[in-house]
Structure formats: C-alpha cells, structure tokens
Write a protein that binds this DNA or RNA. Structure first.
Lengths: 116, 116
DNA sequence: GCATCGATTCGACAGTTCTCGAAATAACGA
DNA sequence: TCGTTATTTCGAGAACTGTCGAATCGATGC
C-alpha cells in the first residue's frame, strides 16, 4: 500500500498537461508500452524534457520502465492508479453503498458490461 | 464532462499534503461538511492559508462551498472524483475486463459487500 | 576501439506555488 | 451604527517546477 507521500507524487505526476498526455497514451497502448523516443516523437516534446516527465510519472508509480537493447520502454503501471482510486473513494459511502453508484459507473463501463 | 484543464486542476489540488488531508477529512465527514474554521482548527493550519487551499480544491471540483450565516461550509464534491476515476481507467482493459479486477477491488470494498 | 543511436543528467533561467502577516469583506447581535 | 466573529484577499519572500541546450551515459555494430 502506498503511503501519503507516494500518493502525493502520483497526483502531482498527473497535474501537468504533457504528463497527462503521456499517461493517456500509455494506458491506451497497453502492457507492451512504447520506447521513450517514440513517445517524444508522437507528442512532439524534446526527448530530454520528456525523460524528466517520465521520471516524475515513474516516481508516482504510474509508469514502469524496462530496457530493451538501447531502447527504454515505458508502460502504464496500474498499481499507482489503484491506490489513487482507493484514496479517492475511501469512506465515501457512509453505509449507503448506493451513493457510490456514480463512482462505479465511472469505472465499470470501461471494462465492458460483462465486467461483473 | 470535465475538460483536460479542469481535470488537471483536480489532480493538482490533491498534490499537496494539507489539501490531501482536507479532502480526506471532508469525505469522511459526509455531505454535511464542515465550516472552514473547524477544518483549520482540526488540521492545525492558519485560517488564511487554509482558505487558499480550499479555493484550490474548489477549482478542482473536489469540494463545494455553501454559506450558513457567518460560516462557510465546505463538503466533498464527488463529481470531480468521478471524472478523475474516468480518466484514470479509460481504455485500461483492452477487451479483457478481468484485467480491471484490481481496480474494481480498490473501489468496491469501500461500498460494502452488498454494493453489487 | 570508435562511431552512432537512444536515453538520461546537468545547469541555468523563467514561471509557479506555498505560506502567512496584515488588511479587507461579510454576517450577525446589541 | 458599532463591535465581534468568520472568512477571504493582498502582498511579499522562499521554495519548487518546467523547460531545454549541452554534456554524459549505455548499448550496439563494425
């Protein structure tokens, strides 16, 4: 479980337009991820600037990196995401689960109607 | 639906320890909320500093304010939360809903086992 | 070894955020 | 109206963040 500081890093990581775009791109790309250079090219950001942003996302556990030859491949890391959701929704219902409907509705449609 | 800038404000709002504590407190407190001064006292933050933080949370649609006499009462606003969750989970499953299990597990326990 | 390619780190500048004392605003009661 | 209480806004200093050129590191192939 993430502590408060780690959680803060996760929120800070997404509080910046370029990093939001990177995260979105990587979530769509799936577990295979993309090399740093490809991301830089696709988002039109200088490679060194992007590298800094990727480090911030990694610090927030929102991306994971692995090396493949001379490429470093980044992929979305859902562990950080899970802990953010936990924080956002902890104690939200006060014993009235139906109040969480709108929150569940935000999550479930993405997973298809067969999710549950 | 929140645009990217509004969403960014929501993430930025939680990227700061005092504001994280305020949000957590207000979520626990429920829809009735708390007057600004009570929050300041409970978290040991000067009232003017807290006021600034509350404004940032409000900009991110994470709290709502209403006036009651000379008090201004703040309560958690789940609309911003819902849009954050939507952003975090959009396109995460790639046609394999079972991959979202861990994300659902982050949300459902908070709502009690009878939630679905 | 050395040239090359991909990625990161360094260093500096500009811009933004955090904090809090002091001043201003807003609502109430006497 | 005046004094009191609750909250917000203003202003300034310190700290932090985003950006990108230049230098560095790491892996590959010749």
């Amino acid at each position: 479980m993430m502590n408060d500081e780690a959680l803060m890093h996760a929120f800070a990581a997404l509080a910046q337009p370029t990093r939001m775009k990177v995260f979105r791109l990587l979530v769509r790309e799936g577990p295979d991820g993309l090399p740093a250079g490809d991301i830089a090219r696709r988002l039109n950001v200088p490679q060194n600037t992007l590298s800094t942003h990727l480090a911030v996302l990694a610090r927030g556990r929102l991306v994971r990196k692995r090396r493949a030859g001379r490429h470093v491949i980044y992929a979305a890391d859902m562990e950080g995401v899970r802990d953010m959701i936990r924080f956002l929704t902890r104690d939200c219902c006060h014993g009235h689960p139906e109040k969480c409907e709108q929150l569940l509705d935000a999550l479930l449609p993405e997973c298809g109607p067969a999710a549950r």
